[in-house]
């Protein structure tokens, strides 16, 4: 248990340093770090503190919370196919964010952006949980998720198409695929409070999820309040996914792949899986964000493209396996 956490921490730290040292401006590594720490005036400091630092911090925050949210949803629904991006939670959050931007609310009041995304995410998670119940029947879950994704995607496209702004329609791809390019510390501060609340809510669900593996009755008999557990997971997931999507668009598959890869390292227990998944998610998104900058430095390749290329085959593999298990 401590060993995978230690190894993952090392990996995240390495990738974070890598993320800080990669960019189109080809700075000498040592100069960049010195500028980052020491500060000062020149363009070097501007690049390190205002461009690369927020990008790295956001990758850690968003990747980490996506991994955590994926592990929590999979634990609660007891279904390895649950994931905020696939099930339309991110899509609804994106719709909320787009509405906040297009109505001018976010220009008048900055926190309206994450708040509106949060509202979208809450709506999606509530529909999903009510629809499938705690047993997480696969077919209902996936079909419900597809429907929610489709509605959210269609409404997002509609709002952006109706905008008088000539750039808005092109942003559909950002909201569907996600990107960390050109973010600033402002976006970090916008997302941070909601991420902290979400983390606090999800931090306490581990033991409840462990108990739930024995069945609802057993968990209830052990003194766990299942209604409370559900509420924490619904609100916690919505908080972190809403805040992340509001600043970086919807990034899929992180919450699916990471818990699945790491489940073996914690003996399949959903409680400890939460924290290793958080670290694994941070590592995965940092890696993906480094990769998009290496593959196409001038193009703003979207993050979701990479995570989907890795994640979708995984998803197919999981579906294949669950089909065989049923047969």
């Amino acid at each position: 248990m401590t060993r995978p956490i230690f190894l993952l921490l090392m990996l995240v730290a390495l990738l974070a340093i890598g993320s800080l040292s990669i960019g189109p401006a080809n700075l000498p590594f040592a100069d960049g770090l010195r500028a980052l720490v020491a500060g000062g005036d020149g363009p070097l400091v501007l690049v390190m503190r205002e461009i690369r630092l927020p990008r790295m911090v956001l990758a850690v925050m968003i990747g980490g919370t996506l991994g955590l949210a994926g592990a929590a949803m999979q634990g609660y629904l007891r279904n390895p196919l649950a994931e905020p991006g696939l099930l339309g939670v991110s899509g609804c959050a994106a719709l909320g964010a787009v509405l906040a931007i297009q109505t001018g609310m976010s220009a008048a009041f900055a926190l309206a952006l994450p708040l509106s995304a949060l509202a979208g995410a809450v709506l999606a998670v509530v529909i999903l949980v009510v629809l499938t119940g705690p047993r997480g029947e696969t077919l209902t879950l996936i079909l419900g998720g597809i429907a929610i994704s489709a509605i959210a995607g269609a409404l997002t496209s509609l709002v952006l198409n109706l905008s008088p702004n000539p750039f808005a329609a092109n942003e559909i791809i950002f909201w569907m695929m996600g990107s960390l390019a050109d973010r600033s510390m402002l976006h970090v501060w916008l997302a941070l409070p909601f991420m902290i609340v979400g983390l606090a809510l999800l931090a306490g669900v581990g033991r409840g999820l462990d108990a739930l593996t024995l069945g609802e009755d057993a968990a209830a008999a052990m003194g766990f309040d299942l209604g409370m557990l559900r509420l924490r997971i619904v609100l916690g997931t919505a908080c972190v996914v809403g805040a992340g999507t509001a600043v970086a668009g919807s990034i899929g598959f992180v919450g699916l792949v990471v818990p699945h890869l790491l489940r073996g390292t914690v003996g399949g227990r959903p409680g400890p899986l939460l924290w290793v998944s958080a670290l694994g998610g941070a590592a995965m998104l940092l890696g993906a964000d480094i990769a998009v900058r290496l593959i196409a430095p001038d193009r703003d390749l979207k993050l979701g493209v990479l995570t989907a290329l890795v994640g979708a085959p995984f998803f197919l593999h999981l579906v294949w396996r669950s089909r065989r298990q049923r047969a």
Binding site: A25, P43, L44, I51, N165, A168, N170
Partner: peptide, 26 residues
């Protein structure tokens, strides 16, 4: 990229005026 702009630090910067309705792009 913003990085290239920051490093070049031009003496004059000419930007477009935002269009009505908001967008992330601007």
């Amino acid at each position: 990229s913003l990085e290239a702009l920051a490093m070049a630090s031009p003496e004059a910067l000419i930007t477009g005026q935002p269009y009505p309705g908001a967008s992330r792009s601007e």
